[in-house]
């Protein structure tokens, strides 16, 4: 039973080629709120199943998960659609859960950690929708100079990107550090390679999205910057995520 459950969980904490299902469903959903919800809830199901069945995780699965993370991180480098990029980043991030010790994944801490690292991705999907509302599409290269035209939106986007890319003080950075102390040196090197790919990808997104002359001349902008209320709403959420990262590390450091 536990062995069969493992094959099901592989779809929820997706490892290539079991990523097919996540990828298919993510593309089928057209509403950004549904996509955001999927990014957050999908791995929670995986963690829950791990908790319920507590299967023996074979060693090869860790290596497959690392390969999957690197594979999607690498492919995300050249993606143009921001929501597709968020989907690929999710596929690069989620399999890393297999590298954690099973007692840590299948626990409340596992749920909390997954929530904290997937929330920024969900926010990114929603912000991509905000760009789409203004430019018709959240397509990298189509909206250069976003910062000059929509400074609030860009500020939120950049902060979210930093959270996604495991930059301190956001939780993903500390989860990554925690993970590094649990795995062997060779896996740690692979993990840091994945982290490097995320950084490279993030730099490319920022360069193509926010920099350059304004795109107003080639694309009709249909709305202004995000409202003050939306700024505070998203800002509070991101601040909460950042703060929870500090609290997470504080509790981890306190336990040392």
């Amino acid at each position: 039973m536990a062995k069969a459950a493992l094959w099901v969980i592989v779809f929820f904490l997706p490892v290539f080629p079991a990523t097919l299902l996540f990828s298919y469903l993510y593309r089928r959903l057209s509403d950004p709120r549904q996509r955001a919800a999927m990014i957050v809830l999908w791995p929670q199901l995986g963690v829950l199943l791990l908790w319920l069945f507590q299967p023996q995780i074979p060693a090869w699965l860790g290596w497959a998960a690392l390969f999957s993370a690197a594979f999607y991180g690498f492919r995300a480098l050249v993606l143009k659609g921001l929501d597709a990029w968020a989907g690929f980043m999710a596929l690069s991030l989620l399999p890393l859960a297999w590298l954690l010790p099973s007692e840590a994944v299948g626990s409340v801490l596992g749920h909390v950690m997954m929530l904290l690292v997937t929330l920024p991705l969900a926010v990114l999907v929603l912000l991509a929708a905000e760009i789409s509302d203004r430019y018709g599409a959240a397509y990298l290269g189509l909206t250069p100079g976003l910062l000059a035209e929509h400074p609030r939106l860009t500020g939120l986007l950049v902060t979210t990107l930093l959270a996604v890319l495991a930059t301190p003080p956001f939780p993903a950075f500390f989860v990554m550090l925690g993970l590094l102390t649990e795995v062997g040196v060779s896996v740690a090197v692979g993990l840091l390679l994945v982290w490097y790919l995320w950084g490279w990808s993030g730099v490319r997104v920022f360069q193509q999205l926010a920099m350059g002359e304004e795109a107003a001349a080639v694309v009709s902008v249909t709305a202004g910057d995000v409202s003050c209320q939306a700024l505070w709403r998203y800002g509070a959420l991101l601040a909460g995520i950042g703060l929870s990262g500090v609290v997470l590390v504080w509790s981890m450091a306190g336990g040392v």
């Binding site: 250069p144 100079g145 982290w195 730099v203 490319r204 920022f206 920099m211 350059g212």
Partner: peptide, 18 residues
């Protein structure tokens, strides 16, 4: 942000730092 070269080479810096 109006100078793409600024962002390009700043990116080189960040990736080397990484």
């Amino acid at each position: 942000v109006r100078r793409p070269a600024a962002g390009r080479y700043a990116g080189w810096g960040l990736l080397t730092f990484r």
